[in-house]
């Protein structure tokens, strides 16, 4: 009797979950499954692996996958290296200024990707502010440099979008480091630098990991920055965008998005493992 009551209460509570679960199953899982299925189907409905075989043996497409991964990895490494000192200042040094720092980190997240790209285009135009500084004001160069459509500027713009996520991830782990461990190392005669590299840094590896995966995942899927700022990159999202717009080979685009999806799922799995280790 009691069990029946308990079970019906549990069933009633599960109804709270049902609408969201059904909605996501139909409008999130099914489109992705449908899309992947298309990449395995021949024109007349049979099963084929030929697209993947072609994709993974073609030098050009292999290059695209590799370039996607390398670009994301580069953006991730740069973001983490830049983010760490900033997170360290935010948690350890800023004191009353920490509110301001958090605000300055969050404010860019409120701006559109279009706004930021527009800003980069203006700053680095041929007669833009940066060339004016370099040539006229500082006299470092004789002729203005061409910045737009260079890989460097595209990478800088991607870092600009993603680095706040890395700072916030690292800061949250740094906050939890037990400072007595550092004091212990100092008391026992380790230098500040040695204490940092042998105590603080290892204790924050998880934060670096979560931040890095987050940045990598977002970088892997981003294309608007690359469409507008150029840089000559050939990445999976850019190619999907082009297939959709011009070539219109939708089965190929499905193949590419399935590969992108698999990479994203692998990242998600890693992220969940890391978070579980942190006990979140």
């Amino acid at each position: 009797m009691l069990d029946a009551v308990k079970n019906s209460a549990r069933a009633r509570r599960a109804l709270l979950l049902a609408p969201a679960l059904i909605f996501l199953a139909v409008f999130f899982v099914m489109p992705l499954a449908d899309n992947s299925a298309r990449s395995f189907l021949t024109e007349d409905g049979g099963f084929t692996l030929s697209r993947y075989a072609a994709f993974l043996t073609d030098r050009f497409y292999l290059g695209v996958i590799l370039e996607t991964l390398i670009l994301s990895a580069a953006v991730t490494v740069i973001s983490v290296v830049i983010a760490y000192p900033v997170a360290y200042v935010l948690v350890r040094k800023a004191g009353r200024l920490s509110g301001l720092i958090v605000f300055l980190l969050i404010a860019p997240l409120l701006t559109s990707i279009i706004m930021r790209t527009f800003g980069w285009q203006v700053l680095f135009a041929r007669r833009g502010l940066v060339n004016q500084w370099l040539v006229t004001d500082l006299g470092l160069l004789d002729t203005p440099l061409r910045w737009l459509n260079t890989p460097g500027l595209a990478i800088a713009a991607l870092v600009h979008v993603l680095v706040p996520f890395a700072v916030l991830s690292i800061a949250s782990v740094l906050q939890g480091v037990d400072r007595r461990l550092e004091e212990g190392a100092l008391v026992l005669g380790a230098s500040r630098i040695r204490t940092f590299f042998e105590v603080t840094l290892p204790l924050t590896v998880d934060g670096i990991g979560t931040g890095a995966i987050l940045v990598f995942m977002i970088a892997n899927g981003s294309f608007v920055t690359l469409v507008l700022l150029g840089g000559g990159f050939q990445t999976l999202p850019l190619l999907i965008y082009q297939q959709f717009n011009t070539t219109r080979d939708f089965a190929l685009a499905s193949t590419m998005s399935t590969i992108l999806l698999v990479i994203a799922l692998a990242c998600l799995w890693l992220q969940l493992r890391l978070l579980r280790r942190q006990g979140v």
Partner: peptide, 27 residues
């Protein structure tokens, strides 16, 4: 696990969600 699933749209590439949904919703 369900919480992770419900948060997972945040981790999927937006361009894939957009592209896949267009075809699915058209069908």
């Amino acid at each position: 696990a369900i919480t992770a699933f419900m948060l997972s749209p945040l981790s999927m590439p937006m361009i894939v969600i957009g592209f896949a949904s267009l075809f699915f919703l058209s069908r």
